[in-house]
């Protein structure tokens, strides 16, 4: 049986406030190589927009030259950093396909077409003190922003990061110094030799985190469930994950990016991308 409200993609987002999206173009003011072949792409935006963006929000970026139809669709990118004082937004982009390859080849002064902010956000519960971040590759983007906010609120953060190899990892200098930072690599060149989720069990077993926030591929979420679930006390810690889907409209109209939840098929661009792990039908 389908749930009518959620089925049509108009149920209020589970977490965070949905802010109004707009379509605009903006000059690129920074292109900084990071994490191996990735770049931090910074654009200017109105201060009010930079102020309204929350960790987990994403923008749909147009990745094609004027006059061309390829690639046709925009690409969704979570915000890595939002800076109201300098009126900038920063995205973390690694070249995987044609769209991202085009993005990383942009230069300062070029113009970027944006649609956003879109989607819901990660939400820190009022009583949470200890937060565990679990990042897979460029999935680190929204968790870096969330970590900055959490530390500013005086919360304790442990940041776990996994990558294929050492150079693909986030530099510790990009996180506040009070954050405990642990890494895992597939090739063992740095930190734990294996998956980042291998590091999660110890923290959950010792009942340290109040909340877990994750961003990475769906395979990482599956092993995260395996690492967390056996050691949970009731629902504690709760786990929020950001679901990655191919998207077309970003506004809940096309229903191309749905996620199957306990409440039916939901448009992850509007009712997500952030979901409570327990709400998703895995």
């Amino acid at each position: 049986m389908v749930d009518l409200e959620s089925d049509i993609g108009l149920q209020p987002a589970t977490f965070g406030a949905v802010v109004s999206a707009s379509e605009f173009s903006s000059p690129i003011v920074g292109v900084e190589p990071v994490m191996g072949d990735a770049v931090l792409l910074t654009v200017t935006v109105p201060a009010a927009m930079a102020e309204s963006v929350r960790p987990g929000h994403f923008f749909d970026l147009l990745c094609r030259l004027d006059g061309s139809f390829d690639p046709l669709l925009r690409r969704p990118y979570s915000v890595f950093r939002s800076d109201p004082r300098h009126q900038t937004l920063t995205f973390l982009v690694r070249p995987f396909g044609r769209g991202s390859a085009w993005l990383v080849s942009r230069t300062v002064g070029a113009s970027l077409e944006l649609l956003g902010p879109l989607g819901n956000t990660y939400t820190i519960a009022p009583k949470s003190r200890n937060l565990l971040m679990v990042a897979g590759g460029v999935g680190a983007a929204p968790l870096v922003m969330l970590t900055d906010r959490a530390v500013a609120q005086g919360l304790n953060v442990t940041f776990l990061m996994g990558s294929a190899d050492g150079p693909g990892l986030l530099s510790p200098s990009m996180l506040p110094s009070v954050v405990e930072y642990q890494v895992a690599t597939d090739d063992g060149s740095k930190g734990h030799h294996g998956f980042v989720t291998d590091l999660v069990g110890d923290y959950v077993r010792s009942h340290w985190p109040d909340q877990v926030f994750a961003c990475g591929p769906e395979s990482m979420y599956r092993s995260l469930r395996g690492a967390v679930n056996p050691h949970r006390t009731g629902r504690r810690p709760t786990v929020q994950v950001s679901m990655e889907r191919t998207m077309a409209c970003g506004l809940g109209a096309c229903l191309g990016c749905v996620v199957e939840t306990r409440h039916g098929m939901q448009a992850s661009c509007v009712q997500g991308p952030v979901y409570d792990m327990d709400e998703i039908v895995w």
Partner: peptide, 10 residues
């Protein structure tokens, strides 16, 4: 899912 795929200019 998946429900959408890109094709050349489409």
């Amino acid at each position: 899912m998946p429900r959408i795929a890109e094709s050349p200019a489409g």
